[in-house]
Design a protein around this nucleic acid. Structure first.
Lengths: 335, 335
DNA sequence: ATGAAAGCGCTAACAA
DNA sequence: TTGTTAGCGCTTTCAT
């Protein structure tokens, strides 16, 4: 069923129908009413594809994420999708776990399907970013683009790292171990910077031996603690760069016969679902992923309307959530 | 840049270029080589939109889910998206939390954007299913369609309920409380059926007072346990229909000064991320959500090719994962 | 093996 | 206010 079928039935030209469905001013009220009646009667829906074709615009945006299952990504995507739709666009979502699929998808979504803009959720900057077509608006979520050529939305990771460490310092801890995420990712580096800043401010020397790199998995948190002890490290608190590793660390501590937070305090990051239901409930930093997604979508659509506007780099705040996995430092007996 | 630009540059007609990019047989090898060279040289990409227009096919599928963040949905969607892409389609993903957005999206995706098929992730059957357009292939994930008019993919929920209960029975428990999900959802009902079957098989009378409806949240699991005790229910084990409620139940048990699994065994459902990191680690039923997503995509694409093939209703198995939140029944002293 | 013509369903410019 | 005429970039006849 096409615009012409409707036109024939309503006794007008197809152009008039077009005007009606596009809310053009220049239509007689009677005619409009008649056409609209015919449309509902026939159950006609304009073909968006043909519309794209004629207008040269798709109102499609693309979103590439390493995966769709990680709850942080999922939250960002859901919010971005909803916001995009609210603003009259549609977000094409795809998972690009590796560089190959990333490149292929860029091709499919931007070049073939003519998405008008791209949202890249990317924890780190690697070669794939060089494949990005110029002249198509891009917004980065997570990592910032190399040359600062595209807008980005990020959480204030440095501040987060600082706040987590500061919380432990305020509880009286002086020896604070730090389990980072993958150091190829921007956020890990920034959180580490925050950790160092807080220590420095407190007049505590930074000890390399207290920092260990994890891979975000609970297992890596578990192993990190074991390794720290094995290397003879002394610490009364741990700052893990995400909740999963924090949970792993807690397990390791408990398996070693110690208690959290009595013997060792642990702070995580993310405030993942059920963080409050672990035992002990996790002290952590909450990130508003939905806000990121919304902002990212807005930034991208802004850019579409205004390609030459100055690049914005949005940085959203994080929030400390104190629960029961951290406690004041207590001097321990023994050597 | 269009097919004609390439044609002009290569000194052929635009039609020949079309033949080349469509791998038509009827092209001279020399010509093909020349055209292909021109294509790479110019970086030409066929406009998929125009192609849809001319061919009348979009190769788009749509997927509607209550949300994108629940890890079970996210897994299904990710797998379906990947599989669809592998098979030459693209999955348009959108979250439809309520009936309104569901209806709107059906309109946008199927009618306007001409998606060729629909994947509905839907835990329950409500009015929205009546809005589904006929003559467009639909596959249901989760709930089964009323009239069995569309194919569906589901886990064997009844079997899962049976297995969970059976596990507790084999440990010697006779009084098994059951915290269900929302009873408007199919899976809750089926799992309850499995629970009853297992009891019956073991010669145990079904007690309404031991069954309580939750809403899938940890909080509801917590409250369910409190309510059971308040009503004077006696039980040595709990079967919660998801892990979140199981976690809530465990918290309630502990808050009441009892231990899991010594005093009360708890089994969950889903094997959610970090289920093994809770304390105690959760005994639960694992569902292969990725398999569901893959199967659903395949079923839908099958149906596109073969609209009159018999409706398939795939039912995938679930798997018992025994951890430490369940233990053999021990007779307690006291009255 | 290649090219010319027509049309997919719509919008944009122009004409009436 | 309405209708007519051209395309959008491609594919699909049908000629050659």
């Amino acid at each position: 069923m096409t615009i012409r079928d409707v036109a024939a039935r309503a006794g007008v030209s197809h152009q008039t129908v077009s005007r009606v469905i596009n809310n053009s001013e220049r239509v007689n009220d009677d005619t409009r009413a008649r056409v609209e009646a015919t449309i509902t009667e026939m159950g006609y829906r304009p073909n968006a594809i043909a519309r794209f074709m004629a207008r040269g615009r798709t109102y499609n945006l693309a979103c590439l994420s390493p995966n769709l299952t990680d709850f942080t990504y999922a939250n960002i995507i859901e919010a971005a999708e909803t916001e995009a739709r609210r603003l009259g666009y549609f977000l094409l979502i795809a998972s690009a776990p590796d560089e190959n699929s990333f490149t292929t998808l860029i091709d499919q979504l931007l070049l073939s399907r003519r998405a008008e803009g791209l949202l890249v959720i990317s924890p780190f900057l690697d070669a794939r970013h060089e494949r990005l077509p110029r002249n198509i608006p891009v917004v980065f979520v997570g990592a910032e683009p190399q040359q600062g050529r595209a807008p980005s939305v990020r959480l204030d990771e440095t501040k987060g790292g600082y706040m987590a460490t500061r919380h432990l310092l305020e509880l009286g801890h002086r020896q604070i171990a730090h389990v980072t995420g993958l150091m190829i990712e921007d956020c890990s580096r920034f959180r580490l910077v925050g950790y160092r800043e807080a220590l420095k401010e407190a007049g505590i020397d930074f000890e390399t031996s207290l920092v260990i790199e994890g891979d975000w998995s609970a297992t890596s948190g578990y192993k990190a603690v074991q390794q720290l002890w094995q290397q003879g490290a002394q610490f009364s608190a741990i700052f893990a760069q995400n909740d999963r590793m924090a949970v792993g660390a807690i397990r390791a501590i408990r398996d070693a016969g110690k208690q959290v937070p009595c013997d060792i305090s642990v702070i995580g990051y993310d405030d993942m679902p059920l963080a409050s239901y672990f035992d002990p409930s996790l002290t952590t930093l909450r990130q508003d992923m939905s806000a990121i997604g919304r902002q990212a979508a807005q930034l991208l659509i802004d850019r579409l309307a205004n390609p030459r506007s100055p690049l914005k780099h949005v940085r959203l705040p994080v929030q400390l959530v104190v629960r029961t996995s951290t406690a004041p430092y207590v001097m321990k007996g023994g050597s």
